[in-house]
Design a protein around this nucleic acid. Structure first.
Length: 259
DNA sequence: ATTGTGGCCTGCCCGC
DNA sequence: TGCGGGCAGGCCACAA
């Protein structure tokens, strides 16, 4: 489920996990660790505490006072729970009922509380010292110039470029569709073919989407969302929405006003 | 290098 | 009610 907005909710929730000594590292699913084994992870966290909760794109990071950085990626169905509660949100596709079997990683604090990553589909992962060099600017804070650079002269579709985390980090399928729909841009349009004013509009629209949907409660709260189904119609002009794969992802868009 | 594709996993929903 | 197919908000390895 999570895109940049949800990861930001998790980051905020993660602030409740700061400055609490870690008593135990919970690793019920060894495969959930990437590039680090259970012993190394335990060594890095046990007896230490988190000092900062950060985020870049869809990557959440918790700085550990002893030096390492814990990286959390949530995949499509991951969620973070601190002291048994997740941030308030509606889970559209992820199972809404919690199941302890889906706990993949966590820590138990000396005070008895916990921070747990639950991920039914196991597409997320946990790392130490995540490599940020292959990640683009954060979509929420990136500038117009950075967006322009991210689009570059690429001939790939605008949609797939916006979702390329190595160029522009944070947008997922829903936020991209909502943004392009509001900006009146055809998702198939060549990424590197936008005029300067179009890029400026895209940037402005994207920020409006992020700020607005963040307040509404998440990536699934877009104006387009409820029409994301068979026979969906454009909320702007009533045209029948197209549903097709763009950049490998199911895409809804309005052929009447997106060009 | 860049771009497209398939696959990873599992749960859920819909139609039969 | 049960079953099978298709779907899923992400990301990575791989091939062309």
């Amino acid at each position: 489920m999570p895109e940049i907005l949800e990861i930001e909710y998790y980051r905020r929730a993660g602030e409740a996990a700061l400055r609490r000594p870690i008593k135990k590292v919970l690793m019920p699913d060894g495969d959930y660790l990437r590039g680090v084994d259970a012993a190394e992870m335990r060594k890095a966290l046990k007896g230490s505490l988190f000092t900062t909760a950060r985020r870049r794109g869809k990557l959440m990071m918790l700085d550990v006072d002893s030096g390492p950085v814990l990286g959390l990626r949530f995949g499509m169905t991951g969620r973070l729970e601190v002291d048994g509660a997740g941030p308030i949100e509606k889970l559209e596709y992820a199972p809404s009922r919690q199941n302890p079997e889906w706990d993949r990683f966590g820590v138990e604090f000396a005070d008895g509380g916990t921070m747990v990553v639950s991920d039914p589909r196991r597409l997320g992962n946990v790392t130490l010292d995540p490599d940020l060099s292959k990640m683009g600017p954060d979509a929420w804070t990136g500038s117009v110039d950075e967006l322009t650079a991210a689009l570059g002269t690429s001939t790939t579709s605008l949609k797939s470029r916006l979702m390329d985390q190595a160029r522009w980090a944070g947008l997922g399928n829903l936020l991209t569709d909502e943004t392009l729909w509001r900006a009146g841009l055809d998702p198939h349009r060549g990424a590197g073919k936008l005029t300067k004013p179009k890029i400026a509009k895209l940037h402005k629209t994207m920020h409006a989407v992020l700020n607005e949907l963040s307040e509404r409660g998440g990536s699934h709260m877009g104006d387009l969302q409820e029409e994301r189904s068979a026979d969906g119609r454009c909320p702007k002009d009533g045209a029948e929405l197209r549903r097709e794969k763009v950049g490998g992802r199911t895409t809804y868009w309005c052929p009447k006003h997106q060009s």
